[in-house]
Design a protein around this nucleic acid. Structure first.
Lengths: 352, 352
DNA sequence: CCAAATTGCGACAACGTTTGCGCAAATTCC
DNA sequence: GGAATTTGCGCAAACGTTGTCGCAATTTGG
């Protein structure tokens, strides 16, 4: 429904319709014509196109007050991540902050695989003022985004080249802190559950072991997706091989939750038989038993900050790339303790 | 700053500037020209006029230009809901289905309060082809959406007037099924944790008790927000008053998770001392111990179906309002059992 | 060395609005 | 009853973009 349509139906010109609708001056058209126009308008539920109106009315983009601008928030990972609170918490914070500055969150992709070229191709078609990219990304994806969006900020645990705007919590440091904490409790044989390939938390895990002089074995590593199910499978893998560890570092909280479940299912007590530490500190971890010890990542701050940086850049506030590194801390709760003398060790085919 | 300005300064045509900025094809201009243009763009902090862009890209789906079509997905509830898996699961499914039909999910509001008039006012400015509204809504919000979006589909547990397109799982029936199940196990004194006002699950809960001839008391009801923390507080409220119940119906899974935690913290065993049932069947509930018995809501189907219906309507496939009512079932797991003779009853100030 | 393909770029039309201007017809004035 | 004024309405030009088309200049091929 446009003015043109209405004009045609009413048998008058576009100008007349516009004038009638905007009530500019009541004597713009005869009462008869006015009625006819309003009739059609109501019948067809005409809504004026605000883009066209704004354009014509000369709303300059610098007047941040008038027309809401938009930022996208993209989850640069496969489908399952969308239901990970890590992402939704950050997305929510981004939106909050953006809204304060009169920006809308325009796209918040929940389940699209950005590695899929068909998806990527279509993404470029969409006009937004800037984009926040969450998660992990390889060089190809990085390049893709820089090409398709004028302003981009990266948010996550993986630091990237300093030519990009980014807000990060250093994944390697996070892993090291977690391992150090376990070590400080007395653990020396520490396992890993999570992704391995191209994963900075895994790299950090390895480095931490080395720098602490702890043994590293591939048998201590369960390479699984970072998810509830992945964690569950990972813990079972470790138990099945009867590996001799007293603690596990899980790549994120969901993984840890799945692992805890698996351990408990086979009768192992946490933290007496095995200590478990996660990463993220999502709300859920405080509502399971035992309450999960985890590395607290400042998700909300990450979201707020990244939105601010993005908007600032869109509006020309800064020119040089900004890299913000946020602090984290170990949220000490009940899933980690010193290794017990009387613990029940994993043995092959061990069942409750 | 407009394309024209830039073009003048760079000594090229508007078209060239547009092509360079939009990176449509890299060979659109010589590297030299590209650099000059980017120089000017950055120096002057050019921001494309989104009104003009939107206008050009067209808003109605029947446009000559191939503007990607879009649907919005709005969470019609306050900020905290955005991190509830109920919403994110459905949103993800909507996006998947939409993508199949060449639609994009344009807005997935995660933390905006739609009850806020300022928010609502700005929402109307944004062009989308249709919107899916998730959650709860009163008449005012309903009217608002029908006015601002041409095509709307409602998704959730609350059925509404049949003049609207909607995909629902009847909340009242869900509550009744849960209560009936508890009753069939032998429970007669059943509590409720969740929201009360304007909440169909609460209504259904009351009706179920009545039709089964079970006692209803306000002391059995904990009126709290449906969230982890709400559930935790709710369970504590019930325990503090020493109410004599053997089972609780929680308005959703997060609430149930919080409640389980609270019960366990005070030394009550589930299901021996108290049975707990939730609603939604989000993934997490299978990874706590005991595994939660809950009413399985077909979240993914709800999302897929609502997207299909919305798109079908946008494209003129149907005219009459469609109301889809989806089935649910009780996912029987380990948090519900017949009431035990030897159970530990709640008593005031009871502590472990 | 000439035809054919490719590259770099500009002209121009459109998107839906608003609005100044102008033109005809109808009304008023003397 | 002719000139001046009013009334009702259409024409066309913008607003800032994007995209198609085509033209010239350059490179390539035979």
């Amino acid at each position: 429904m446009t003015l043109k349509e209405i004009a045609k139906q009413a048998g008058v010109s576009i100008s007349t319709v516009s004038r009638v609708i905007n009530q500019k001056n009541t004597k713009a058209a005869s009462p008869e014509v006015q009625n006819r126009i309003w009739e059609i308008v109501r019948a067809n539920g005409y809504i004026p196109n605000s883009s066209a109106r704004d354009l014509k009315m000369g709303v300059s983009p610098s007047q941040a007050t008038k027309r809401p601008k938009t930022v996208a928030c993209l989850f640069a990972r496969s489908a399952t991540t969308s239901t990970d609170l890590f992402f939704t918490e950050i997305a929510r914070a981004i939106e909050q902050e953006a809204f304060k500055h009169n920006y809308f969150l325009k796209h918040s992709f929940t389940g699209l695989d950005l590695a899929d070229p068909a998806v990527a191709a279509r993404l470029g078609d969409i006009p937004v003022d800037g984009a926040a990219i969450l998660g992990r990304y390889d060089q190809k994806i990085l390049r893709f985004f820089s090409e398709h969006y004028k302003y981009v900020v990266y948010v996550g645990l993986n630091p990237i080249g300093s030519q990009y705007d980014q807000v990060v919590c250093e994944g390697a440091q996070v892993a090291k802190a977690a391992v150090s904490y376990l070590h400080s409790l007395g653990h020396t044989r520490i396992g890993y559950i999570g992704e391995v390939e191209n994963e900075i938390r895994y790299t950090g895990f390895g480095e931490a072991l080395k720098s602490l002089g702890l043994p590293f074995s591939h048998k201590h590593v369960a390479n699984v997706k970072v998810s509830l199910e992945g964690g569950y499978r990972g813990a079972n893998l470790l138990m099945d091989t009867g590996v001799d560890i007293t603690a596990v570092f899980c790549a994120n909280d969901n993984t840890a939750l799945g692992a805890v479940r698996a351990f408990q299912e086979r009768g192992y007590k946490i933290p007496q038989d095995v200590s478990v530490i996660g990463v993220d500190d999502i709300e859920t971890v405080q509502y399971i038993s035992p309450m999960l010890t985890t590395v607290h990542i400042p998700l909300e701050e990450m979201g707020h900050l990244s939105a601010k940086i993005l908007i600032d850049r869109i509006e020309g506030g800064h020119r040089l790339p900004i890299k913000v590194v946020l602090p984290f801390y170990i949220a000490k709760r009940d899933s980690c303790a010193p290794p017990s003398m009387h613990r029940r060790a994993f043995t092959q085919q061990n069942d409750v």
